[in-house]
Amino acid sequence: MLRFTIFRILHAVPLLVAVILAIFLMQQAIPGDPVQAMVGDFPVPPAFREAIEKKYRLNDPLPVRIGTYFNNLLHGDLGFSYHAQRPVLDMVLERAPRTILLAAAGFAVAIPLGMLIGVLTGTTRRRSMDQAGTTVTLILYAVPTFWLGQLLVILFALKLGWFPTQGMGPLLSQATGLQWVLERLHYLALPVAAFAIHDGMRVARIMRASVIDTLGQGYIVTARAKGLRRSAIIWRHIVRNSSLPLVTIAGYAIGSALGGAVLLETVFTWPGLGLLLIESIRTSDNLMVMGVVIFSALAVVTMNFVVDVLYALIDPRIRHQR
């Protein structure tokens, strides 16, 4: 197991380096003047431009800038945001918990919802119910999360007035304790709903396919022959054995959550990494963009590594595969 773990780490590190290098090179190719973006629409004096370019080493040769950036990364330095006038790492660590909260709450709703729909459509004896459930699942999964979020805002926030339209909480609040928690949950409801509906349908599709495959296994036939009730067969045997493939999509789901959060957080003005990324792109804050992307890439690579290790623990045959 130790050998397998080391082997996966040796695969993950070059992948992460390649992603960072690719993003760095793409940013260099994007047109724009970071010095002008810093001062806005005002003219930039030559002396000021020269000082900024020297301070942030903007005129260094590309190989030198790449080497400097990776050397700083090894020391835990993501750079300094000239727009926010704060270290990039501080900004990322400040915003990351908010995005993680949104994603975790979304998964907490999406996984049970998707599993329930997948089991119902996979075990139903009515073909019409299965077809209807599959159709609805595909339609909801195909709807982009940002568009679904806008629909939820229009219906439940603007039309019905049940939920706030944006933000993580009121600007001025004196709530404490349980009241403070309920207040935040009120703001969290719509973005979590948009997140959970989309990802829940992904889980439902995978769960349904796994349930149908499990139904054809010999131990299910044996359980029926023993006279076990249908509900017992479903929950004790089918659900338990069909849930294993959900581990596989965990790494992809994390990446999808961080990627989808960019637009979803913009719709709801949720102050997380997604909104920070959009703001940094608008202001040409390249180091901040790199910081957010690196955090997202690290999260995805780490999650994929954890999934590989979990699968190796569950199925020992995987440890001997290369």
Rank of each mutant, 00 (worst) to 15 (best):
Q36A: 06
P97Q: 06
N241C: 00
T302S: 14
Q321N: 11
D130Q: 06
Y311K: 04
L120D: 10
H83Q: 15
M290T: 09
E183R: 08
L264G: 11
A194R: 06
A110F: 08
T302Y: 03
A297E: 04
Q217P: 00
T283Q: 13
L185V: 10
L16D: 15
L89G: 10
S296C: 08
A209S: 15
V211T: 12
L93E: 15
T121Q: 02
W147V: 06
S256V: 11
P97K: 09
P316Y: 02
D77R: 02
V221D: 08
L62T: 15
L155D: 13
I139S: 05
P97R: 00
Q174T: 12
P87N: 03
T5P: 02
L275D: 13
G32A: 11
A261T: 04
P14Y: 07
L277E: 13
F7I: 07
L244P: 10
P46Q: 00
L172T: 09
G76F: 03
L264Q: 07
I66L: 07
L138M: 00
P144A: 00
T165N: 09
V292F: 11
I318C: 05
G216H: 02
A299K: 01
R98N: 14
A189V: 08
F48E: 12
L244Y: 11
L171A: 13
M201T: 14
I139H: 05
R86D: 13
S210C: 01
Q28P: 06
A22H: 08
A96R: 02
H83W: 11
I100C: 01
A232L: 06
F80S: 01
L58C: 04
G169I: 08
D77M: 01
A157K: 10
G200T: 08
T137V: 04
R230I: 03
L113C: 09
L151E: 07
I233F: 01
D33A: 01
